[in-house]
Design a protein around this nucleic acid. Structure first.
Lengths: 204, 204
DNA sequence: TAAATAATTGTATAGGTATTCAATAATTCT
DNA sequence: AGAATTATTGAATACCTATACAATTATTTA
Protein backbone atom coordinates (compact mmCIF):
# COMPACT_ATOMS: atom_id res chain seq x y z
CA UNK A 1 0.00 0.00 0.00
CA UNK A 2 1.10 3.52 -0.77
CA UNK A 3 1.16 5.99 2.11
CA UNK A 4 -2.20 7.71 2.42
CA UNK A 5 -2.21 11.33 1.35
CA UNK A 6 -3.64 13.93 3.71
CA UNK A 7 -6.47 15.77 2.04
CA UNK A 8 -9.07 18.27 3.13
CA UNK A 9 -12.67 17.15 3.17
CA UNK A 10 -13.48 19.30 0.14
CA UNK A 11 -10.49 18.05 -1.77
CA UNK A 12 -11.57 14.45 -1.30
CA UNK A 13 -15.11 15.36 -2.21
CA UNK A 14 -14.18 17.20 -5.38
CA UNK A 15 -11.80 14.48 -6.48
CA UNK A 16 -14.50 11.88 -5.99
CA UNK A 17 -17.03 14.02 -7.84
CA UNK A 18 -14.66 14.59 -10.72
CA UNK A 19 -13.71 10.93 -10.98
CA UNK A 20 -17.38 10.02 -10.93
CA UNK A 21 -18.14 12.63 -13.57
CA UNK A 22 -15.25 11.38 -15.66
CA UNK A 23 -16.63 7.87 -15.38
CA UNK A 24 -20.05 8.98 -16.59
CA UNK A 25 -18.66 11.07 -19.45
CA UNK A 26 -16.40 8.21 -20.41
CA UNK A 27 -19.18 5.64 -20.50
CA UNK A 28 -21.23 7.98 -22.66
CA UNK A 29 -18.67 9.49 -25.00
CA UNK A 30 -15.76 7.09 -24.90
CA UNK A 31 -12.18 8.03 -24.21
CA UNK A 32 -11.83 10.56 -27.01
CA UNK A 33 -15.04 12.30 -26.05
CA UNK A 34 -13.85 12.56 -22.46
CA UNK A 35 -12.48 16.12 -22.59
CA UNK A 36 -11.51 18.10 -19.52
CA UNK A 37 -14.26 20.59 -20.31
CA UNK A 38 -16.94 17.91 -20.44
CA UNK A 39 -15.79 16.28 -17.22
CA UNK A 40 -15.99 19.55 -15.34
CA UNK A 41 -19.33 20.35 -16.87
CA UNK A 42 -20.66 16.93 -15.86
CA UNK A 43 -19.46 17.62 -12.33
CA UNK A 44 -21.14 21.02 -12.40
CA UNK A 45 -17.84 22.85 -12.05
CA UNK A 46 -15.91 25.25 -14.21
CA UNK A 47 -13.34 24.01 -16.72
CA UNK A 48 -10.24 25.15 -14.87
CA UNK A 49 -10.95 23.22 -11.67
CA UNK A 50 -9.76 19.88 -12.94
CA UNK A 51 -6.13 20.90 -12.93
CA UNK A 52 -6.48 22.22 -9.40
CA UNK A 53 -7.28 18.79 -8.04
CA UNK A 54 -5.44 16.59 -10.51
CA UNK A 55 -2.00 16.72 -12.01
CA UNK A 56 -3.43 16.34 -15.52
CA UNK A 57 -6.01 14.58 -17.55
CA UNK A 58 -4.16 11.28 -17.41
CA UNK A 59 -4.31 11.48 -13.66
CA UNK A 60 -8.10 11.67 -13.77
CA UNK A 61 -8.27 8.85 -16.27
CA UNK A 62 -6.06 6.73 -14.08
CA UNK A 63 -8.26 7.25 -11.05
CA UNK A 64 -11.30 6.61 -13.17
CA UNK A 65 -10.03 3.24 -14.32
CA UNK A 66 -9.10 2.34 -10.78
CA UNK A 67 -12.57 3.31 -9.66
CA UNK A 68 -14.08 1.12 -12.34
CA UNK A 69 -11.90 -1.86 -11.46
CA UNK A 70 -12.80 -1.45 -7.81
CA UNK A 71 -16.50 -1.59 -8.64
CA UNK A 72 -16.05 -4.73 -10.71
CA UNK A 73 -13.96 -6.53 -8.14
CA UNK A 74 -16.27 -5.61 -5.26
CA UNK A 75 -19.12 -7.12 -7.18
CA UNK A 76 -17.18 -10.31 -7.83
CA UNK A 77 -16.19 -10.62 -4.18
CA UNK A 78 -19.83 -10.24 -3.17
CA UNK A 79 -20.86 -12.96 -5.59
CA UNK A 80 -18.08 -15.24 -4.38
CA UNK A 81 -19.31 -14.92 -0.81
CA UNK A 82 -22.66 -16.37 -1.84
CA UNK A 83 -21.15 -19.28 -3.74
CA UNK A 84 -21.43 -22.77 -2.26
CA UNK A 85 -19.62 -25.03 -4.71
CA UNK A 86 -16.57 -24.51 -6.90
CA UNK A 87 -18.88 -24.35 -9.88
CA UNK A 88 -20.78 -21.55 -8.17
CA UNK A 89 -17.51 -19.71 -7.70
CA UNK A 90 -16.60 -20.17 -11.35
CA UNK A 91 -20.01 -18.87 -12.39
CA UNK A 92 -19.66 -15.94 -10.01
CA UNK A 93 -16.33 -14.93 -11.53
CA UNK A 94 -17.52 -15.20 -15.11
CA UNK A 95 -20.81 -13.43 -14.43
CA UNK A 96 -18.98 -10.74 -12.49
CA UNK A 97 -17.02 -9.94 -15.61
CA UNK A 98 -20.26 -9.25 -17.45
CA UNK A 99 -22.11 -6.75 -15.25
CA UNK A 100 -25.85 -6.89 -15.86
CA UNK A 101 -26.55 -3.83 -17.97
CA UNK A 102 -22.99 -3.11 -19.05
CA UNK A 103 -22.59 -5.70 -21.78
CA UNK A 104 -23.56 -3.45 -24.67
CA UNK A 105 -21.68 -1.82 -27.55
CA UNK A 106 -21.37 1.65 -26.00
CA UNK A 107 -19.74 0.41 -22.83
CA UNK A 108 -17.63 -2.13 -24.67
CA UNK A 109 -16.32 0.56 -27.03
CA UNK A 110 -15.36 2.74 -24.09
CA UNK A 111 -13.54 -0.14 -22.49
CA UNK A 112 -11.64 -0.96 -25.67
CA UNK A 113 -10.52 2.64 -25.98
CA UNK A 114 -9.05 2.40 -22.49
CA UNK A 115 -7.21 -0.75 -23.49
CA UNK A 116 -5.78 1.23 -26.38
CA UNK A 117 -4.68 4.02 -24.02
CA UNK A 118 -3.28 1.47 -21.62
CA UNK A 119 -0.75 0.55 -24.22
CA UNK A 120 1.05 3.90 -24.11
CA UNK A 121 1.03 4.49 -20.39
CA UNK A 122 3.13 2.39 -18.04
CA UNK A 123 0.97 3.21 -15.02
CA UNK A 124 -2.10 1.95 -16.85
CA UNK A 125 -0.43 -1.22 -17.98
CA UNK A 126 0.39 -1.91 -14.34
CA UNK A 127 -3.23 -1.35 -13.33
CA UNK A 128 -4.41 -3.70 -16.05
CA UNK A 129 -1.91 -6.35 -15.00
CA UNK A 130 -3.10 -6.17 -11.42
CA UNK A 131 -6.64 -6.70 -12.61
CA UNK A 132 -5.68 -9.67 -14.77
CA UNK A 133 -3.65 -11.21 -11.98
CA UNK A 134 -6.65 -10.95 -9.68
CA UNK A 135 -8.86 -12.67 -12.23
CA UNK A 136 -6.27 -15.36 -12.77
CA UNK A 137 -5.86 -16.06 -9.05
CA UNK A 138 -9.61 -16.13 -8.52
CA UNK A 139 -9.88 -18.74 -11.24
CA UNK A 140 -6.91 -20.64 -9.87
CA UNK A 141 -8.63 -21.04 -6.51
CA UNK A 142 -11.55 -22.65 -8.32
CA UNK A 143 -9.43 -25.21 -10.16
CA UNK A 144 -6.87 -25.99 -7.48
CA UNK A 145 -7.33 -29.65 -6.61
CA UNK A 146 -9.69 -30.18 -9.52
CA UNK A 147 -7.18 -30.38 -12.34
CA UNK A 148 -3.37 -30.34 -12.42
CA UNK A 149 -1.62 -26.98 -12.37
CA UNK A 150 -0.57 -27.10 -16.02
CA UNK A 151 -4.07 -27.73 -17.28
CA UNK A 152 -5.49 -25.35 -14.73
CA UNK A 153 -3.24 -22.61 -15.98
CA UNK A 154 -4.30 -23.26 -19.56
CA UNK A 155 -7.95 -23.21 -18.65
CA UNK A 156 -7.50 -19.94 -16.78
CA UNK A 157 -5.81 -18.39 -19.79
CA UNK A 158 -8.55 -19.59 -22.08
CA UNK A 159 -11.26 -18.25 -19.78
CA UNK A 160 -9.59 -14.86 -19.46
CA UNK A 161 -9.07 -14.64 -23.19
CA UNK A 162 -12.69 -15.50 -23.89
CA UNK A 163 -13.92 -12.84 -21.49
CA UNK A 164 -11.81 -10.16 -23.16
CA UNK A 165 -12.56 -11.44 -26.64
CA UNK A 166 -16.31 -11.43 -26.12
CA UNK A 167 -16.13 -7.84 -24.85
CA UNK A 168 -14.05 -6.83 -27.82
CA UNK A 169 -16.55 -8.37 -30.19
CA UNK A 170 -19.41 -6.66 -28.44
CA UNK A 171 -17.65 -3.37 -29.14
CA UNK A 172 -17.70 -4.27 -32.83
CA UNK A 173 -21.44 -4.81 -32.68
CA UNK A 174 -21.60 -8.56 -32.06
CA UNK A 175 -25.28 -9.30 -31.32
CA UNK A 176 -24.44 -11.96 -28.71
CA UNK A 177 -26.25 -11.47 -25.40
CA UNK A 178 -24.80 -11.44 -21.91
CA UNK A 179 -26.32 -14.81 -21.09
CA UNK A 180 -25.03 -16.37 -24.28
CA UNK A 181 -21.56 -15.00 -23.64
CA UNK A 182 -21.52 -16.42 -20.13
CA UNK A 183 -22.86 -19.74 -21.40
CA UNK A 184 -20.19 -19.99 -24.09
CA UNK A 185 -17.43 -19.50 -21.55
CA UNK A 186 -18.84 -21.86 -18.91
CA UNK A 187 -19.66 -24.58 -21.42
CA UNK A 188 -16.30 -24.35 -23.14
CA UNK A 189 -14.54 -24.70 -19.81
CA UNK A 190 -16.62 -27.48 -18.29
CA UNK A 191 -16.90 -29.47 -21.52
CA UNK A 192 -13.19 -30.20 -21.44
CA UNK A 193 -13.29 -31.75 -17.97
CA UNK A 194 -13.63 -35.47 -17.24
CA UNK A 195 -16.56 -36.81 -15.19
CA UNK A 196 -14.33 -37.03 -12.12
CA UNK A 197 -13.18 -33.47 -12.54
CA UNK A 198 -16.70 -32.25 -13.07
CA UNK A 199 -17.74 -33.99 -9.88
CA UNK A 200 -14.97 -32.27 -7.96
CA UNK A 201 -16.13 -28.97 -9.42
CA UNK A 202 -19.60 -29.58 -7.99
CA UNK A 203 -18.14 -29.89 -4.47
CA UNK A 204 -17.54 -26.96 -2.08
CA UNK B 1 -19.36 -5.81 -55.28
CA UNK B 2 -19.17 -2.07 -55.69
CA UNK B 3 -18.68 -0.76 -59.21
CA UNK B 4 -14.98 -0.40 -59.95
CA UNK B 5 -13.79 3.19 -60.07
CA UNK B 6 -11.84 4.32 -63.12
CA UNK B 7 -8.46 5.64 -62.10
CA UNK B 8 -5.33 6.74 -63.88
CA UNK B 9 -2.28 4.57 -63.54
CA UNK B 10 -0.59 7.15 -61.33
CA UNK B 11 -3.61 7.56 -59.13
CA UNK B 12 -3.73 3.83 -58.43
CA UNK B 13 0.00 3.78 -57.84
CA UNK B 14 -0.02 6.68 -55.41
CA UNK B 15 -3.00 5.33 -53.53
CA UNK B 16 -1.28 1.99 -53.18
CA UNK B 17 1.95 3.65 -52.08
CA UNK B 18 0.16 5.78 -49.53
CA UNK B 19 -1.84 2.89 -48.13
CA UNK B 20 1.36 0.86 -47.86
CA UNK B 21 3.12 3.76 -46.18
CA UNK B 22 0.19 4.21 -43.82
CA UNK B 23 0.40 0.53 -42.95
CA UNK B 24 4.08 0.77 -42.14
CA UNK B 25 3.69 3.94 -40.10
CA UNK B 26 0.75 2.41 -38.30
CA UNK B 27 2.59 -0.76 -37.36
CA UNK B 28 5.47 1.31 -36.06
CA UNK B 29 3.74 4.23 -34.33
CA UNK B 30 0.21 2.99 -33.69
CA UNK B 31 -2.95 4.78 -34.67
CA UNK B 32 -2.23 8.02 -32.83
CA UNK B 33 1.26 8.22 -34.28
CA UNK B 34 -0.12 7.75 -37.76
CA UNK B 35 -0.27 11.43 -38.77
CA UNK B 36 -0.88 12.59 -42.33
CA UNK B 37 2.57 14.17 -42.35
CA UNK B 38 4.28 10.93 -41.36
CA UNK B 39 2.37 8.87 -43.91
CA UNK B 40 3.39 11.20 -46.74
CA UNK B 41 6.95 11.26 -45.50
CA UNK B 42 7.05 7.47 -45.38
CA UNK B 43 5.77 7.41 -48.95
CA UNK B 44 8.44 9.94 -49.95
CA UNK B 45 5.84 12.55 -50.88
CA UNK B 46 4.96 15.98 -49.61
CA UNK B 47 2.40 16.48 -46.85
CA UNK B 48 -0.37 17.95 -48.99
CA UNK B 49 -0.61 15.04 -51.40
CA UNK B 50 -2.61 12.77 -49.15
CA UNK B 51 -5.74 14.85 -49.45
CA UNK B 52 -5.35 14.91 -53.23
CA UNK B 53 -5.79 11.15 -53.46
CA UNK B 54 -7.99 10.50 -50.44
CA UNK B 55 -11.06 12.18 -49.10
CA UNK B 56 -9.53 12.45 -45.65
CA UNK B 57 -7.42 10.65 -43.14
CA UNK B 58 -10.22 8.24 -42.26
CA UNK B 59 -10.33 7.23 -45.88
CA UNK B 60 -6.67 6.23 -45.77
CA UNK B 61 -7.16 4.40 -42.50
CA UNK B 62 -10.09 2.52 -43.97
CA UNK B 63 -8.08 1.36 -46.98
CA UNK B 64 -5.22 0.49 -44.70
CA UNK B 65 -7.35 -1.79 -42.56
CA UNK B 66 -8.77 -3.40 -45.67
CA UNK B 67 -5.26 -3.95 -46.96
CA UNK B 68 -4.27 -5.57 -43.70
CA UNK B 69 -7.30 -7.84 -43.67
CA UNK B 70 -6.55 -8.88 -47.22
CA UNK B 71 -3.00 -9.86 -46.27
CA UNK B 72 -4.22 -11.92 -43.34
CA UNK B 73 -6.91 -13.72 -45.30
CA UNK B 74 -4.61 -14.45 -48.22
CA UNK B 75 -2.21 -16.08 -45.82
CA UNK B 76 -4.96 -18.18 -44.30
CA UNK B 77 -6.21 -19.27 -47.71
CA UNK B 78 -2.69 -20.34 -48.65
CA UNK B 79 -2.39 -22.36 -45.46
CA UNK B 80 -5.79 -23.96 -46.02
CA UNK B 81 -4.72 -25.14 -49.45
CA UNK B 82 -1.89 -27.13 -47.90
CA UNK B 83 -4.09 -28.72 -45.25
CA UNK B 84 -4.95 -32.43 -45.57
CA UNK B 85 -7.24 -33.14 -42.60
CA UNK B 86 -9.86 -31.09 -40.85
CA UNK B 87 -7.47 -30.74 -37.96
CA UNK B 88 -4.90 -29.32 -40.36
CA UNK B 89 -7.48 -26.80 -41.52
CA UNK B 90 -8.29 -25.81 -37.95
CA UNK B 91 -4.61 -25.37 -37.22
CA UNK B 92 -4.19 -23.33 -40.40
CA UNK B 93 -6.96 -20.95 -39.40
CA UNK B 94 -5.72 -20.45 -35.87
CA UNK B 95 -2.09 -20.07 -36.91
CA UNK B 96 -3.12 -17.68 -39.65
CA UNK B 97 -4.57 -15.40 -37.02
CA UNK B 98 -1.18 -15.19 -35.34
CA UNK B 99 1.23 -14.19 -38.12
CA UNK B 100 4.77 -15.29 -37.36
CA UNK B 101 6.48 -12.09 -36.22
CA UNK B 102 3.39 -10.02 -35.57
CA UNK B 103 2.36 -11.40 -32.19
CA UNK B 104 4.13 -8.79 -30.10
CA UNK B 105 3.00 -5.86 -27.93
CA UNK B 106 3.69 -3.12 -30.48
CA UNK B 107 1.59 -4.69 -33.20
CA UNK B 108 -1.10 -5.78 -30.77
CA UNK B 109 -1.38 -2.24 -29.40
CA UNK B 110 -1.77 -0.85 -32.90
CA UNK B 111 -4.46 -3.36 -33.62
CA UNK B 112 -6.36 -2.57 -30.44
CA UNK B 113 -6.29 1.12 -31.26
CA UNK B 114 -7.94 0.33 -34.58
CA UNK B 115 -10.60 -1.65 -32.78
CA UNK B 116 -11.22 1.44 -30.67
CA UNK B 117 -11.50 3.61 -33.79
CA UNK B 118 -13.74 1.01 -35.39
CA UNK B 119 -16.29 1.71 -32.73
CA UNK B 120 -17.06 5.24 -33.89
CA UNK B 121 -17.10 4.63 -37.63
CA UNK B 122 -19.87 2.64 -39.26
CA UNK B 123 -17.77 1.80 -42.29
CA UNK B 124 -15.12 0.27 -40.06
CA UNK B 125 -17.60 -1.76 -38.09
CA UNK B 126 -18.81 -3.21 -41.36
CA UNK B 127 -15.26 -4.13 -42.36
CA UNK B 128 -14.67 -5.79 -39.02
CA UNK B 129 -17.92 -7.74 -39.32
CA UNK B 130 -16.93 -9.02 -42.73
CA UNK B 131 -13.64 -10.22 -41.30
CA UNK B 132 -15.34 -11.95 -38.38
CA UNK B 133 -17.89 -13.58 -40.65
CA UNK B 134 -15.09 -14.96 -42.80
CA UNK B 135 -13.34 -16.41 -39.78
CA UNK B 136 -16.59 -17.90 -38.56
CA UNK B 137 -17.38 -19.53 -41.88
CA UNK B 138 -13.86 -20.88 -42.19
CA UNK B 139 -14.25 -22.51 -38.80
CA UNK B 140 -17.74 -23.73 -39.68
CA UNK B 141 -16.39 -25.64 -42.66
CA UNK B 142 -14.01 -27.43 -40.31
CA UNK B 143 -16.69 -28.54 -37.88
CA UNK B 144 -19.51 -29.28 -40.31
CA UNK B 145 -20.23 -33.00 -39.98
CA UNK B 146 -18.01 -33.30 -36.94
CA UNK B 147 -20.32 -31.83 -34.32
CA UNK B 148 -23.90 -30.60 -34.46
CA UNK B 149 -24.56 -27.07 -35.61
CA UNK B 150 -25.40 -25.72 -32.16
CA UNK B 151 -22.21 -26.99 -30.59
CA UNK B 152 -20.28 -26.05 -33.70
CA UNK B 153 -21.50 -22.51 -33.45
CA UNK B 154 -20.52 -22.32 -29.79
CA UNK B 155 -17.09 -23.66 -30.50
CA UNK B 156 -16.60 -21.15 -33.30
CA UNK B 157 -17.58 -18.32 -31.01
CA UNK B 158 -15.22 -19.53 -28.32
CA UNK B 159 -12.35 -19.85 -30.79
CA UNK B 160 -12.91 -16.38 -32.20
CA UNK B 161 -13.15 -14.87 -28.75
CA UNK B 162 -9.94 -16.56 -27.65
CA UNK B 163 -8.08 -15.26 -30.69
CA UNK B 164 -9.17 -11.70 -30.02
CA UNK B 165 -8.67 -12.02 -26.29
CA UNK B 166 -5.14 -13.30 -26.60
CA UNK B 167 -4.27 -10.41 -28.93
CA UNK B 168 -5.78 -7.95 -26.51
CA UNK B 169 -3.77 -9.38 -23.66
CA UNK B 170 -0.62 -9.25 -25.71
CA UNK B 171 -1.24 -5.54 -26.13
CA UNK B 172 -1.29 -5.23 -22.35
CA UNK B 173 2.09 -6.92 -22.13
CA UNK B 174 1.07 -10.53 -21.57
CA UNK B 175 4.31 -12.56 -21.88
CA UNK B 176 2.56 -15.49 -23.60
CA UNK B 177 4.27 -16.60 -26.82
CA UNK B 178 2.72 -17.19 -30.21
CA UNK B 179 3.09 -20.96 -29.89
CA UNK B 180 1.55 -20.98 -26.44
CA UNK B 181 -1.36 -18.89 -27.63
CA UNK B 182 -2.02 -21.23 -30.52
CA UNK B 183 -1.69 -24.26 -28.24
CA UNK B 184 -4.17 -22.84 -25.73
CA UNK B 185 -6.77 -22.35 -28.42
CA UNK B 186 -6.29 -25.69 -30.13
CA UNK B 187 -6.21 -27.62 -26.88
CA UNK B 188 -9.25 -25.86 -25.48
CA UNK B 189 -11.20 -26.68 -28.62
CA UNK B 190 -10.15 -30.29 -29.11
CA UNK B 191 -10.33 -31.16 -25.41
CA UNK B 192 -14.09 -30.71 -25.45
CA UNK B 193 -14.63 -33.23 -28.27
CA UNK B 194 -15.47 -36.89 -27.80
CA UNK B 195 -13.20 -39.62 -29.21
CA UNK B 196 -15.55 -40.09 -32.16
CA UNK B 197 -15.54 -36.40 -32.90
CA UNK B 198 -11.79 -36.21 -32.60
CA UNK B 199 -11.49 -39.09 -35.05
CA UNK B 200 -13.69 -37.26 -37.55
CA UNK B 201 -11.51 -34.19 -37.11
CA UNK B 202 -8.48 -36.25 -38.13
CA UNK B 203 -10.13 -37.15 -41.43
CA UNK B 204 -9.93 -35.07 -44.63
C1' DT C 1 -14.15 41.10 12.51
C1' DA C 2 -10.03 41.14 9.78
C1' DA C 3 -6.46 38.64 7.80
C1' DA C 4 -5.08 34.61 5.70
C1' DT C 5 -5.82 30.66 3.27
C1' DA C 6 -8.39 27.68 0.20
C1' DA C 7 -11.50 27.04 -3.61
C1' DT C 8 -13.34 28.38 -7.97
C1' DT C 9 -13.84 30.76 -12.13
C1' DG C 10 -13.23 31.93 -17.02
C1' DT C 11 -10.21 33.42 -20.13
C1' DA C 12 -5.72 33.07 -22.37
C1' DT C 13 -1.98 30.27 -24.13
C1' DA C 14 0.42 26.69 -26.39
C1' DG C 15 0.94 22.79 -29.05
C1' DG C 16 -0.38 19.70 -32.32
C1' DT C 17 -2.80 18.03 -36.47
C1' DA C 18 -6.14 17.67 -40.42
C1' DT C 19 -7.27 20.24 -44.17
C1' DT C 20 -7.04 23.97 -47.70
C1' DC C 21 -5.04 26.28 -51.41
C1' DA C 22 -2.50 29.06 -54.55
C1' DA C 23 1.60 28.32 -56.96
C1' DT C 24 4.72 25.21 -59.46
C1' DA C 25 6.19 21.17 -61.97
C1' DA C 26 5.35 17.30 -64.79
C1' DT C 27 2.79 14.85 -68.11
C1' DT C 28 -0.43 14.19 -71.75
C1' DC C 29 -2.84 15.64 -75.74
C1' DT C 30 -3.47 17.95 -80.39
C1' DA D 1 6.11 22.46 -79.78
C1' DG D 2 2.45 24.63 -77.37
C1' DA D 3 -1.76 24.13 -74.86
C1' DA D 4 -4.27 21.71 -71.55
C1' DT D 5 -4.59 18.73 -68.06
C1' DT D 6 -2.84 16.33 -64.14
C1' DA D 7 0.25 15.84 -60.26
C1' DT D 8 2.86 17.83 -56.53
C1' DT D 9 4.44 21.06 -53.32
C1' DG D 10 4.84 23.53 -48.89
C1' DA D 11 3.21 27.07 -46.44
C1' DA D 12 -1.03 29.02 -44.40
C1' DT D 13 -5.33 28.05 -42.09
C1' DA D 14 -8.68 26.39 -38.99
C1' DC D 15 -9.75 23.68 -35.28
C1' DC D 16 -9.48 21.36 -31.12
C1' DT D 17 -7.95 20.45 -26.52
C1' DA D 18 -4.85 20.25 -22.44
C1' DT D 19 -2.86 23.28 -19.52
C1' DA D 20 -1.60 27.76 -17.10
C1' DC D 21 -2.94 31.64 -14.64
C1' DA D 22 -4.57 36.00 -12.88
C1' DA D 23 -8.72 37.49 -10.81
C1' DT D 24 -12.65 36.49 -7.79
C1' DT D 25 -15.22 34.31 -4.22
C1' DA D 26 -15.74 31.48 -0.17
C1' DT D 27 -14.06 29.59 4.01
C1' DT D 28 -11.20 29.18 7.88
C1' DT D 29 -8.25 31.03 11.38
C1' DA D 30 -6.52 34.34 14.97
Amino acid sequence: MLPAIKRTRIEDLRRTELVGAAHRVFMLHGLDGMTTARICQAAGLSPGILLYYFKGKDDVLFEMVRYNNRLLLQDIVARLRLAQTRMDRLTAIVEGNFPAHAYQPTVAMAWVSVCAATAKNQRFAKLQKIFYRRLHSNLASVFAGVVGSARGSRIETAAGAMIDGLWLRKSAGDPITRDEAIAVILTTITAQLSDTERFRLSQP
